[in-house]
Structure formats: C-alpha cells, structure tokens
C-alpha cells in the first residue's frame, strides 16, 4: 500500500505571474526568470530627470543600439542575486584558501626579487583599471534598459571591486604598502600605463550605456583577462617561479572566462537583432579594440619581452575569432 506523506494535495490556481506566463507559457518559471523579467518600470513615468531633462527615467534611446525587446539579452549563467552570491562565496573561499596557502608557506619568499617586482609592476596598477571597470558597469546598470541586461552589470561592477581588492591584497603581500604607492604612481605617470589610463577615463566619459559595456566588458576586459591572467601570469610568470602569483590571481582567471560567456552572448544577440546594430557594434569594437591593443602591449612587454608581438597577434586573433562567432567582423592591427 503506498503511503501518502503529504497531508493534502492542492491544485494551484496558476503556475506563475502573468508576465511570465505571457513570455514562457503556463509552466512554473525558474527563479532566474522570476527575479529578472519585466521588473523594471516601463510606462507612465512621472517626472523628467533634473540631471538631464532630455532623458526619460528609463530611456532605451540613450544607446545607439536598438532592441525590440531588451529582455532578449539574457544571461546564459542565469545569475540572480541568490545564485550570484552563492557562486562568488564559493570562489571567494577558494581564493581565501589560496592567499592563506601562499602566506603560510612563505611562497612569496621563494620568488626572486626581480620576479616579484615584475608581478607588482604588472598587477598592482590594474587595481585602478578594475575600479574604473566597477564605475563603468554601475553606469550600464544605472542607465541601461531591461533587467536581464543590466543585472549582470551590477554583479560585474562589484566583482571588479572584489578584484581590485584582491589585487591590493596581492600588492600588500608581495611588496607591502610601498607597492601600492608605487603602483599608483606608475598608473598616474609611467609612460607604459598612460594609454591604459586614458582608455579607462575616456570610457568613463561615454554616456551611451551599451557603448560603455562594449568598450569596457567586451573589448578591454575581453582582451585584458586572457592576456594578463592566462598568458602573462599563469604561463610566463608561473614557469619562472611565480606559481604563487598565479594562485593569487586564480579568481580573476576563472572569473574572466565565466563573464566572457555572458558578454559574448550579449553581443551576439544584439548583432543578430539588426544590420544597424551589427554596424554600430563593429564600429565600437574596432575603434575601442584598436586602442585597447595599443594600451595593453606596453604592459605585456616587461614580462613577455621578445614574445610580446607574437602574444599580441595571438590574442587579437582569439578576440576577433570570438567576435566573429558573435556575428561581428572586426580587424585589429598590432
């Protein structure tokens, strides 16, 4: 005889909220869908902004990119707040364990001064790049349209704050407070960093939220993360005895790979929407891409030395390949 554990079975009146049934039919929706779709106000906005009366409070025309439905831009990772913090807490645990391991085993002492200096020169000023990326993504989240597009950007922004903090801790661990001072000085004054700083400041001056997303997340981070964390740190520094550094940047390596899946998919959907969108994306990715390549090469040179040019060519090809998969043809020079 079967045993009924539930006290009663009640037939629900409906499976979900009206707006989700309209989009996805009468089946129960996922937590991601419930948390994201249609939750931004759309109509009957009350007042014009005093900070810019030409705009409406939620204004899809701030961008040159046009979408019939901005909710087409979904996040393949399906992150909403709950799943986002769970994922980052796990990664944070690993990263914390890595810091702990490097510190308690004195791994930093095993590196040569020269190697340690190389790592500091490359990585410490990047904490300012990360802070720029944080602000740029807050801009996209604040002024973009449609929650499925904007929500990943607030996650991205705070991730970049986390990364800036890991890079600061890395600097403190490898070179103490002086390393942070030196890193900031390089960021402000060293010729090798000036194209990069100009890039970041120029992106911060852009007020088209999708262009900011493209210039920062797609282009700059799309080139920077594979180049710096996968090639310069994990390959080049690691083989010279810098495994410790590679452990301390593991969060960034994995995070870069994870977020590229999202940003690539956004570009793909936008490009597939219309020829006009594709043309705008091509223009942005080419222009910003060219500048990003020029800004990154001098940072790679002290670590990659003779192989810098080959490395840049390889990275450009990989980047253009990803863009092509997303439906955007670009050609960058090095």
């Amino acid at each position: 005889m079967p045993i009924e554990l539930r006290t009663i079975t009640i037939e629900p009146l409906r499976n979900n909220y009206d707006h989700l049934e309209k989009r996805f039919g009468h089946k129960p929706a996922s937590r991601y869908q419930e948390a994201s779709y249609d939750i931004q106000p759309v109509e009957n906005l009350h007042y014009r902004p005093t900070w810019d009366p030409d705009q409406t409070l939620y204004d899809p025309t701030l961008s040159r990119i046009r979408m019939r439905d901005w909710y087409d831009l979904k996040d393949p990772r399906q992150l909403y707040y709950g799943s986002y913090t769970q994922a980052r807490a796990r990664q944070q645990d690993t990263e914390e364990a890595n810091f702990e391991f490097v510190e308690s085993n004195g791994l930093v002492m095993l590196m040569t001064d020269a190697l340690r200096q190389q790592a500091l020169d490359l990585l410490v000023p990047l904490r300012h790049v990360a802070w720029g990326a944080d602000q740029n993504n807050m801009m996209v989240c604040g002024y973009g349209y449609g929650t499925t597009f904007k929500q990943p950007c607030v996650f991205y922004a705070l991730d970049q704050l986390g990364i800036a903090q890991y890079l600061s801790r890395l600097g403190l661990l490898l070179g103490g407070q002086d390393a942070l001072v030196a890193g900031k000085q390089a960021w402000m004054e060293a010729p090798a960093w000036q194209d990069m700083r100009r890039y970041v400041e120029d992106v911060m001056a852009v007020r088209d939220p999708v262009e900011v997303f493209v210039a920062q997340d797609v282009v700059l981070d799309g080139l920077l993360y594979p180049l710096v964390y996968e090639r310069l740190v994990d390959d080049l520094l690691a083989v010279q005895g810098g495994t410790a550094v590679s452990m301390l940047t593991q969060f960034m390596t994995r995070w870069g790979a994870e977020t590229r899946r999202w940003s690539d998919s956004v570009v793909k959907t936008m490009a597939a929407e219309s020829a006009e969108n594709r043309a705008v994306l091509e223009e942005w990715i080419t222009q910003w891409g060219q500048r990003a390549v020029a800004a990154l090469a001098p940072l790679a040179r002290p670590v990659a030395v003779d192989t810098t040019d080959a490395l840049m060519t390889e990275q450009i090809a990989a980047f253009a390949g990803r863009a092509a998969k997303a439906g955007v043809t670009i050609k960058l020079e090095h």
Binding site: R48, T50, W51, D52, P53, D54
Partner: peptide, 11 residues
C-alpha cells in the same frame, strides 16, 4: 523654481 542642469519645462 526647480534646479536642473538644463531648461526644464513640461506640460
């Protein structure tokens, strides 16, 4: 009068 960055006048 309202303080705004640009002329602010709506019906």
């Amino acid at each position: 009068a309202i303080i705004a960055r640009k002329p602010y006048d709506f019906p």
